[in-house]
Computed example of a mutant assay.
Amino acid sequence: MTKPTPLAVQLGRALRAHRQATKLSQDDFADRIKMHRAYYSAIERGEKNITLVTLHRIADGFGVSMSKLLADLG
């Protein structure tokens, strides 16, 4: 397994904060965006470098823009 990059870890933390703000479990959110929970969990841990398509899918699940998610990294 590759070591998580700092940017992937930052993104994972931002996604976890959004998910927790929605009061959804990883299982429930992964179901909402039709993604396997284990894969979504790895994203939150910063273990996956995701594509823009995946980021868009996650943003849609939260009902926010991709730019909003990225703005929350800093």
Rank of each mutant, 00 (worst) to 15 (best):
L52M: 05
G12L: 08
V53F: 03
A59R: 02
I33Y: 02
V53W: 01
T51K: 02
M66Q: 08
L69A: 13
D27Q: 15
A14I: 06
L15P: 15
G74Y: 01
I43L: 04
S41L: 00
N49W: 01
A38H: 09
L73D: 09
R13G: 13
H36V: 03
R13F: 01
R19Q: 02
V9M: 08
V53Q: 09
N49A: 04
H36N: 09
R57H: 03
D27T: 14
S65T: 13
A42G: 00
S67H: 01
L52H: 03
L24V: 03
G74M: 05
A42I: 00
P4K: 14
L7I: 14
N49P: 02
N49G: 07
M66A: 06
K34Q: 08
I33K: 10
A17V: 11
F62I: 07
E44W: 06
A38F: 00
M35K: 04
R37P: 06
I43G: 10
L11F: 07
A14N: 11
A14E: 09
T2V: 11
M66I: 15
I33H: 08
R16S: 04
K68T: 15
P6S: 10
V53M: 03
G12I: 10
E44D: 06
Q10D: 11
D60C: 10
T2E: 15
T54D: 06
F29I: 06
L15Y: 05
K23C: 03
M1N: 07
E47R: 12
S67E: 06
T5P: 07
S67P: 00
T22E: 13
R57T: 09
N49F: 00
L73Y: 08
Y39M: 00
Q26T: 11
R37S: 11
D28A: 14
F29Q: 11
K68F: 06
F62Y: 15
D72E: 14
L70I: 15
E44V: 03
T5M: 08
K48M: 08
L55H: 04
L7Y: 04
R19N: 06
P6I: 05
D28C: 02
F29M: 12
A30H: 11
A30T: 08
R13H: 07
L11R: 12
S65I: 01
I58C: 10
K34M: 00
D27K: 14
I43D: 11
A21D: 10
L7F: 04
V64T: 10
D28Y: 00
D28S: 15
R16Q: 12
D60F: 00
R37E: 06
Y40K: 08
K68D: 13
E44H: 06
S25W: 02
S25G: 09
Q20N: 15
K23W: 00
K48C: 01
L7N: 11
K3N: 12
T2S: 15
Q20K: 15
T22A: 12
G63A: 02
G61W: 02
M66P: 04
A42Y: 00
A42R: 10
A17E: 13
I43F: 03
G12T: 09
K68R: 12
S67G: 00
G46I: 11
S41P: 02
L7K: 11
E44C: 05
T54K: 13
S41A: 14
R45A: 14
T51P: 01
I43P: 13
T5W: 01
R13V: 03
D31S: 14
I50F: 02
H18L: 13
R37H: 11
G63L: 03
K23D: 10
T51G: 05
L69T: 10
R32S: 07
L73T: 10
R37M: 05
